[in-house]
């Protein structure tokens, strides 16, 4: 059962990169929209891009917390 589980994990982590990038882009787009709405350029763009970075890091931490059994397999 080790091999397929490793394969699923690889697929799972390969999806992480795109999700991190997408989080930053979504944050940036939200910031640009809100800046246009309230005419506060460039502050909300910067702030929401930082939020995007935090969301990306959060996705990474979440995935790392769930991927403990990768480590266990290495020890065997």
């Amino acid at each position: 059962m080790g091999k397929p589980k490793l394969f699923y994990d690889l697929l799972k982590y390969s999806s992480l990169g795109l999700e991190m990038g997408a989080a930053v882009v979504i944050g940036l787009l939200m910031g640009i929209y809100l800046d246009k709405r309230f005419e506060t350029y460039p502050w909300l763009t910067l702030l929401f891009m930082c939020f995007g970075f935090v969301a990306a890091t959060k996705a990474l931490i979440k995935a790392l917390k769930k991927g403990i059994f990768l480590e266990e397999e290495g020890e065997e």
């Binding site: 997408a22 929401f48 969301a55």
Partner: peptide, 10 residues
């Protein structure tokens, strides 16, 4: 919310 929107995009 940003994270969940990023899921749709990714």
């Amino acid at each position: 919310v940003i994270g969940h929107l990023a899921r749709i995009l990714s």
